[in-house]
Design a protein around this nucleic acid. Structure first.
Length: 638
RNA sequence: GCCGACGUAGCUCAAUUGGCAGAGCAGCUGACUUGUAAUCAGCAGGCUAUCGGUUCAAGUCCGAUCGUCGGCUCCA
């Protein structure tokens, strides 16, 4: 009796096959092209190898590289080919893990000596050969014991550790490619020849399971695509991203520098300070609208205070200290204790709340040297902080107002963001009940505002849960900017009170929140976001006046004066150079507007306008230009 | 902090097996008086990150320190 397989395709059509049939067979039936491109199949809702026989009744969906799940399988299979190549080239290498990641994959290896970039080339070459051999990825299911024994024989200690930690009911599967066997839930791409355009990009150390306690492994990163053109496009994109790197642009545009003598503590140059001041101007305008009151608290405070706040216990390894008069003082890593001291200087009625105190506070945190990264990860930074003291029933309203403020301000820059909610970490203060209430309050606000968010269990601050706003940089790395953190602990520790309607003392709730996060980091993100071509309102120099010859200098200086009076940042390039040269420099400085003036313009009282983006715009009436640019600046147009 | 790579003029980069540290741009001086992305000529610019070692000789080789860069979250 021959077995019949009934296949239901995505469009609802039904096909019948006799005997063993695989997803690849079905794809071949449909079209030769699909057979070439199919990577994996969804069979009755489960992902299947395309060379795995289908069950008697199969609802089948064929997935190609365009599908995100198939893409990850493709990447993961490439990681396996790489592992095979490494094991062949470096016998004795132990395999750890090799997952798919954004744009590619990696594999961690435990090996005798570190890999060099020449090794990467060799590995890549060997991979090319393996792919060319067109070996089948063969799925093997085995018992837990069989698997452990097999990997013990192979000396794959990490695989044994992984198996032992898999849940009891989990099926143990391996994949064999020629002589190479790896533990893997699959599925894979069927045959190695399906893997086409790959490149190994870097090698780095990485700890087994990400913990410093464990062995340091060699991690090889790679990227892979279904088509060569896609790979090339991706590599070009990375090159492009490098040009946007804020560290490169910070130097080119003379915005900031970081001295070897102050690692992680940036020095802002005059151009950077212009941007800084504009950011703070916007910030103050928007905060005034929401009735924040700005305060300033000390940089250095007695250790006693940090013991009271709980920072000494929970944050000590990140704090700088100094001895003065036989007392220990700490350089503030956060602004909250200062804000608490301010609250304590007065008595409050429930009518005084919410009290919104804002502070642009410079904080220092001793981050590990290896994590420093331009302006994006620093040791000294200015938080655009605020502490809101409120009645417990005001939480929803106040957090909602902050969310609106963040959204309003990010829109000015055209930045997109993702929201995350983080809950109670292992190391934390307060009771489970307090935490649960706080988390519930935050969830409620997000849901009421219909904001999609990702849950980060255990990622909250030690004093309370938080809502984070993440912005992506040019390399799609995610950076936390705004954060809204509930805190039931500090009011307790500092014994903050207000007098309620009942005439009794009550405990206020505190929200810590930042919008930019760190002003330095936000600037770094903006530099990359705009690739240094800032919108006019942020541009360090908004207009450059370019006289053609010496006799036009006076005219240009007169116009510069008018621009400056109107609040426009304008400079005259009165060096003894040709206009082409001056234009070239203004362009590389990414100045939004250039005004060229020669005999004709002086005579007519006009200017010849050139914009950064569109080039020569021809003769323009100066008064009209002034009006236009003043409006553009005041509206903070993008 | 850990793993790896790197550190030469303000910037970008050269310098053969260890054999006199060099170029372009920027800067300064002068000439040219300039019309939409680089005018020409000249001058100056350095304790090769720091400290120590090997050597007749070190930018180059060895060791340490400091810093920078890429990773150290993605679970078979």
């Amino acid at each position: 009796m021959s077995q019949v397989t009934e296949v239901i395709l995505k469009d609802g059509s039904v096909r019948e096959f006799s005997g063993k049939v695989t997803a690849l067979d079905v794809a071949r039936e449909i079209s030769g092209r699909l057979a070439k491109e199919v990577i994996t199949a969804r069979v009755n809702g489960k992902l299947y190898d395309i060379n795995r026989p289908l069950p008697a009744k199969a609802e089948l969906e064929l997935l190609t590289f365009d599908d995100p799940e198939a893409r990850d399988i493709y990447r993961h299979s490439t990681a396996h080919v790489m592992a095979q190549a490494v094991k062949e080239l470096f016998p004795g290498t132990k395999l750890a893990i090799g997952p798919a990641i954004q744009d590619g994959f990696y594999y961690d290896f435990d090996m005798e000596r570190p890999l060099s970039s020449e090794d990467l080339e060799k590995i890549e070459q060997r991979m090319q050969e393996l792919v060319g051999q067109d070996i089948e990825f063969e799925r093997m299911v085995m018992s837990r014991q069989e698997a452990v024994e097999m990997f013990r024989k192979l000396g794959e200690d990490y695989k044994i550790e992984l198996i032992e930690q898999l849940p009891e009911e989990e099926e143990i599967s391996c994949y064999r490619k020629g002589d190479f066997i790896d533990l893997c839930s699959g599925p894979h791409v069927g045959r190695s020849s399906r893997i086409r355009a790959f490149k190994l990009t870097s090698v780095a150390g990485a700890y087994w399971r990400g913990s410093e306690e464990n062995a340091m492994l060699q991690r090889v990163y790679g990227t892979v695509f279904a088509k060569k053109s896609q790979l090339e496009e991706h590599l070009e994109m990375l090159e492009e991203a490098k040009k946007r790197d804020h560290r490169r642009l910070g130097k080119d545009l003379d915005l900031f520098s970081i001295s070897e003598d102050a690692p992680g503590m940036p020095t802002l140059h005059p151009n950077g300070v212009v941007i800084w001041n504009e950011l703070l101007k916007l910030w103050r305008e928007e905060h005034d609208k929401d009735c924040y009151r700005e305060i300033r608290t000390p940089l250095i405070l007695d250790k006693r205070l940090w013991e009271q706040s709980g920072h000494w216990e929970n944050f000590r390894e990140n704090m700088y200290t100094t001895e003065v008069d036989e007392k220990t003082f700490c350089l503030k890593p956060m602004n909250c204790p200062g804000a608490m001291l301010y609250y304590q200087t007065n008595h409050y009625s429930y009518r005084d709340l919410p009290l919104r105190t804002a502070e642009l506070g410079l904080v220092h945190r001793h981050e590990l040297s290896g994590v420093l990264h331009g302006l994006l990860r620093v040791r000294a930074f200015t938080q655009d902080d605020a502490h809101i003291f409120m009645l417990p029933e005001q939480i929803g309203q106040e957090v909602g107002k902050v969310i609106d403020l963040v959204d309003r301000m990010y829109k000015v820059f055209g930045l997109e963001y993702r929201v995350e909610l983080s809950t109670q970490p292992e190391k934390s203060m307060g009771t489970k009940e307090q935490w649960d209430n706080a988390i519930a309050a935050l969830e409620k606000v997000l849901e009421e505002k219909q904001i999609p968010y990702k849950l980060n269990p255990g990622d909250g601050a030690f004093y309370g849960p938080k809502i984070d706003f993440h912005i992506l940089d040019c390399l799609k790395r995610s950076w936390q900017c705004s954060t809204i953190q509930l805190d039931f602990q500090l009011p307790e520790r500092f014994d903050l009170t207000y007098i309620g309607e009942d005439g009794q003392k009550h405990r206020p709730v505190t929200v810590h929140r930042v919008v930019y996060g760190a002003v330095e980091r936000f600037m770094g993100i903006l530099i990359e976001h705009f690739a240094g071509a800032f919108p006019t309102w942020l541009a360090p120099v908004q207009v450059k006046l370019l006289p053609i010859a010496d006799r036009h200098h006076d005219y240009c200086h007169k116009l510069q004066h008018k621009l400056t009076e109107a609040g426009v940042r304008a400079v005259v390039d009165d060096r003894n150079e040709k206009v082409g040269y001056k234009i070239r420099q203004a362009q590389t400085e990414k100045v939004p507007y250039m005004l060229v003036a020669g005999d004709k313009e002086v005579e007519d009282g006009t200017v010849s306008l050139r914009t950064r983006g569109e080039g020569d715009k021809g003769s323009t009436d100066f008064a009209g230009f002034l009006e236009m640019i003043a409006l553009e600046i005041s509206q903070r147009s993008l």
